[in-house]
Design a binder for these strands. Structure first.
Lengths: 343, 343
DNA sequence: CAACGGATGTATAACGTTGCAAAACCAGCG
DNA sequence: CGCTGGTTTTGCAACGTTATACATCCGTTG
């Protein structure tokens, strides 16, 4: 059985509270007493019971981070940033994995899965506005990612429309005229459309036709989905001279297909991805990508949760995280301006 | 303030225990009473306080999974398997991130970081045997991965020596004679050497010289480390005809360097990785890799922790998880036998 | 030397839940 | 109508911790 304050107190011949005082480094404990109690603590191997402490104090020191895919290195890198930042504030992160399924996201947002937490950072895919409306009595929530909700929660994301426009503008500046978009979400009324919108807006601004036949919807966001979408476009007889993918894995999947079809990147088709995952820097053709500042997003998310932890309720805000466009071999050619937003 | 059993009891005009009985679906509650209490529960929006429940029950329903790198998709995929299996048993997984640093691993193994857990699954990198010897009063521990300890804990891993031998044997069967090893761990007395040992044993068995100059040590296990190691080998004037890398990211990093140096894979140099991450299937040259059954490992790990949860202490065991060698373009050539172990 | 007051240690009551044992209730039966 | 035996409901204690209020100690001071 585990050692409790009571055991230590009995062993040291003092009251429970005195042991507690030593454990918590309270003032008004004589050095002699402190040492005596500490000796018992060490001897018995006492360790505080967090559950009990939480019951008393009303907090656990755990915040949950719910992500759609751990397999996507973007989320893995983001998670690492969140975990490290939280650790600096003596918080532990409980990572949850929704698979981007609405049911799972719902469970998480309502606290049914991760049940012993002080706050929640959620990156939703499928969740609708009304799903989040009624979470009375729940812990503070911070939202991440492309989905846009009209709800009183902090939301941390880069400006997806602007970032997508920067990517397309870069392709246009290279002289590309037919830019495909890979990775529109299939089967949603209001899918994660900000990047498609950016694509559309920038093409329009450049005076180029917006060809919806060059938008390929997919079910998922992995390599295979990108490959499948690229295959579909090519098999439809289309030969765009550039591809903008929803994320890097999809871009890499698309490049694989282009390679097997004998199309050269960037000579025949330029490719831009999104997220700047490390994998994109080590292919045979390195990948140009929109690079959100994952460290900043992680730090902002943790700060945001912590800010409303003590019952404090600051005004909800949309935070725009920094990003930049990193140019690599997949769009090599005439130099285009690097579009960086203000930090 | 949150609604407690007491509030519901007062509202419904019954005792606290009766409300508890309704909440827990106990028998011996009349339908009328059940409905009346349920009405109060709904009206007040009562939700059980898990912390209190845990304090009472002595368990939290959380198991921790501590991994060295979330950014490596191998671990991400493994984590997904663990999370899903745990969820089936009504357990939540708290993911921890050690970065492969001894200090962090020590904290985790001694329960200082994730302190509200019922059990721990740990994939250690730096931890030594003696570090794990004294964890009296700690929660059940299951070890994963290549490190081998002589300790009374369950250990779940594939047979790393045999798997490495299979990889090297495959290269030898292709007629390769100079097989480099990339990713021996730098700066450790007894590093994760099982794969190096397999490499050594198989070369010896094949009657080939074991050239330690073809073993490249690295600090980490990422793309960049693989690239750096490959560069080092080439810059030393060596021209092996095959490379066996500690894991897939390193193999891919190495292939990038080979590509930039104008060396063709597999014609000039064949490459085999380890872990079979999805990324390896979508490069310009797809990657042959040792493919551990991540789903099985995850399931075995969870089962192992759960088995010793109730205080039960089954005999500690080494569990060999299944794996196979998946051949792809990076070793295309003369066909070699597929070495699969018994499942 | 009695009274005072700051420093130090202690007893008790929570936090919200559930297991246990006992109490209250309700037929049915002699 | 009281007793029996079963069902339903209740009261209390306990899980391990900390906040609060109180008790004790001891050196100073008038």
């Amino acid at each position: 059985m585990r050692v409790s304050l009571k055991d230590v107190a009995a062993h040291a011949g003092v009251s429970i509270k005195t042991v507690s005082n030593v454990v918590n480094n309270f003032q008004h404990v004589t050095p002699a007493m402190r040492e005596r109690v500490q000796r018992s603590i060490d001897e018995l191997g006492y360790r505080p019971n967090l559950t009990a402490r939480h019951l008393r104090a009303g907090r656990t020191g755990i915040i949950a981070l719910a992500l759609p895919e751990l397999g996507n290195p973007y989320f893995a890198e983001l998670a690492a940033a969140v975990i490290d930042t939280a650790a600096e504030h003596d918080y532990t992160v409980l990572l949850d994995h929704t698979g981007g399924r609405r049911e799972q996201e719902l469970l998480v947002s309502q606290g049914f899965r991760a049940r012993v937490i002080d706050g929640l950072i959620l990156s939703p895919i499928e969740l609708e506005t009304e799903d989040l409306r009624d979470r009375a009595g729940e812990v503070p929530l911070v939202l991440l990612g492309e989905r846009d909700y009209d709800l009183p929660y902090d939301h941390i994301a880069i400006d997806n429309v602007a970032a997508a426009r920067a990517a397309v503008a870069h392709l246009v500046a290279l002289g590309r005229r037919e830019v495909a978009f890979i990775g529109a979400r299939r089967g949603r009324n209001e899918p994660a459309q900000l990047r498609v919108r950016g694509w559309r807006e920038e093409l329009t601004a450049a005076g180029l036709p917006v060809d919806e036949g060059l938008v390929a919807a997919t079910d998922g966001w992995g390599h295979a989905d990108g490959a499948e979408a690229m295959t579909r476009i090519l098999d439809a007889g289309r030969r765009p001279d550039a591809v903008f993918a929803y994320n890097d894995p999809m871009a890499i999947g698309a490049m694989r297909v282009l390679h097997t079809r004998g199309l050269r990147v960037p000579e025949d088709i330029a490719v831009v991805g999104f997220d700047d995952v490390v994998e994109g820097r080590f292919g045979a053709v390195t990948l140009t990508s929109v690079s959100p500042d994952k460290g900043a997003i992680g730090r902002l998310a943790v700060a945001s949760v912590l800010a409303r932890l003590g019952g404090a309720a600051p005004e909800p805000q949309r935070v725009r995280a920094p990003y930049r466009l990193v140019e690599r071999e997949s769009t090599l050619g005439r130099r285009a301006a690097d579009r960086s937003p203000k930090g």
